[in-house]
Nucleic acid binder design. Structure first.
Lengths: 231, 231
DNA sequence: GTAAAATTTCAACAAATGTTGAATTAGGCC
DNA sequence: GGCCTAATTCAACATTTGTTGAAATTTTAC
């Protein structure tokens, strides 16, 4: 992690103030590689190019940095998924789910660090941190659950499929693909990395949709379009 | 992490020798909660109830502890999956895949620590550690790929589905369910934890099979039997 | 211009870490 | 019993960590 050499060591504010947002970005990078607990305040300060005490000036502690980071990332994604789950949308449920997948991709697809941190803390973080994250995941889950329920009501999705699991598989397993498909492609399956993720996304969606659909053999024309617009 | 009080501080060997296996078990626990990098030698020693220097007596360094741990866990699983992928097995491919899933469950289902460590190091570990793990994952991947290919040849699996991805989805996404379904059930979906995982496994397998199958609407009788033998 | 507030770093302290050589001790062999 | 080997801990060293109060400096308000 290269960081700019600190040539001005005088105390007191700089003419260019250190933006707290810059601290958040630095923290996110360190959280991603070290986890929340493993991220030292000094490592974050090094990443940001400032003194560790400045972190305490702007935030109460490391957990506060993390919570602030969550609160910048989750709400826009949740809002967009809530719009997508509006019952007035009369498109086919498969198409709406595809758009939900694209939405998730747009918000967190390039954010491996954020994804890694959230998952890491959810699976092995402190109780309080899990609570903090769960509070922010629930609205997202609810929005997708509404979408799933509309699919059942419209006869697109099999009513016997457990709804909560349908939503969990859709979102969590897609995030897992984002996290692991590139590395698996590269190291185990010897697929070129640039091709692996788009193909994996389409294949995943097709598999998922066939798995829950009342009509698994119906074509998915928007998937074919997605394939063409990529090449 | 409670550990027995150390009442005998004299140097020199104890009448009951510290088994290196015991060190491995302790290390596995610490790796699981702290990651490989975050697991301190002193934490491992505390977990094992010995002095940190003893770890250096038995192993070259922390990475050697980790590699030894991998080499106890992977080969039995790989061997069993290789037996399962024997072309002489004439059962339906869906049933063989179900048995593969049960096999994975038997070997690593209770081993959240091992799973977490392997995934964690694969996604964000040092280059050398990723190599170490990839070497051990490849034979497992190959065994499942053989099984998948036989499914295609026998007309059970759609030939247009990308094979490497089919295998990747089967194994990696199942492991993700093992890692995350309990916590998601508990904290987000409010499903009782004891029910969540068996239901998730069956639902996942059904979704997966329908997704890749040439005949998605065919029933899966062994799944129904699995449900009944559970209740 | 002065005082107060805001911003930033230094310095210090206590605690923790990895690793090594040396000291100690139990058991086996002659 | 003496010697040797194996097993285990201690002690030391250098490095890193989290956090705080104080010093220094810039900006703002009057």
């Amino acid at each position: 992690m290269p960081h700019p050499p600190k040539v001005n060591h005088s105390r007191g504010p700089k003419t260019v103030k250190m933006d707290p947002e810059h601290l958040l970005v630095a923290a996110e990078r360190v959280f991603a590689s070290e986890g929340l607990k493993g991220a030292s305040i000094r490592a974050i300060a090094r990443e940001a190019g400032c003194d560790p005490a400045l972190i305490y000036y702007h935030f109460e502690n490391k957990e506060a940095v993390f919570t602030t980071m969550l609160d910048r990332k989750f709400p826009p994604l949740v809002q967009e998924l809530e719009r997508l789950s509006d019952p007035a949308d009369l498109r086919h449920t498969s198409e709406r789910f595809w758009e939900a997948l694209r939405t998730i991709h747009r918000h967190v697809g390039q954010d491996a660090g954020f994804r890694a941190t959230v998952r890491g803390e959810m699976t092995r973080g402190a109780e309080g941190v899990q609570d903090t994250i769960a509070q922010r995941v629930r609205p997202l889950f609810q929005a997708l659950l509404h979408l799933f329920q509309q699919g059942v009501q419209r006869g697109h999705i099999r009513p016997e499929f457990p709804q909560a699991l349908g939503v969990f598989f859709f979102a969590r397993l897609y995030l897992e693909i984002l996290d692991t498909a590139p590395i698996m492609a590269q190291r185990i399956a010897c697929i070129p990395v640039e091709q692996a993720l788009p193909l994996a996304e389409r294949s995943w969606f097709e598999l998922y949709w066939r798995g829950i659909s009342t009509r698994p053999e119906d074509p998915l024309p928007f998937l074919e379009k997605a394939k063409e617009s990529r090449s």
